[in-house]
Amino acid sequence: MKILVCISKAPDTTAKIAFTDGNTKFDENGVQFIVNPYDEWYALVRGLELKEANGGTVTVLNVGGAENDPIIRKALAIGADDAVRIDAAATDALSVAKQISNYAKDKGFDLIFLGKETIDYNGSQVGGMVAELMNLPYVSLATKIDVSGDVATVERDIEGGVEVVEVTGALVLSAAKGMAEARIPNMRGIMAARTKPLAVEAGTDVTAVTSIKNFELPPAKSACKLVAADNVEELVSLLHNEAKAI
């Protein structure tokens, strides 16, 4: 079984969010970067579990510059066999999806996994785009996948429930919580990751169709109105009369 896991780089969940250049650029100053949690915790780990159960390989892929190598090594330390970095700027979702599909289309991957969204731009776009570009089925926000022969049984979140689908042949999936338990790389994994292959491939010529003009921070929240613990009725009256929320 040949598995491809697409990973992206994201600011640490505690990173201070600030902007520079007249609010047009994310301020990376002092920001720690991590593997996007959905890609690492769910997509990558489930890929590794399926490989461990069925044999095969797990390749991780990232679109970006050499500054992304540390997060790629982290994925190798967790257990991926090899890695590919498409050396191109990740300008927008469609251009990243085109880079991925241009690379993957003739490699014969059985499963292509991604996280359900990145925690920076929260797009939830790349997986569906890759699937369309490769003419493959796409299961979004999947919480479970089991594979038997060439049939995969996948569960995905839907409004107020779960849908179970069966896919024959190759597929693209975006992974959500429930898919797997996060793994922490051990010392042996970290050592091994240093020598695992990380191929750098030139990107193809693609153009972005969206661009961020500028950012804005939310307005500061006005101070919290405190109500005494022995005066709960006051809270209910505020919520009813002032906030009109109940």
């Binding site: 600011p11 969010i17 902007f19 925690i119 920076d120 731009y121 929260n122 972005a208 169709v209 969206t210 661009s211 961020i212 003009k213 500028n214 950012f215 804005e216 921070l217 939310p218």
Partner: peptide
């Protein structure tokens, strides 16, 4: 909303 609601982005569509 971007950065999980910690900021907003104004995105231009050019296609």
């Amino acid at each position: 909303a971007v950065f999980s609601g910690k900021a907003f982005a104004f995105v231009e569509v050019n296609s």
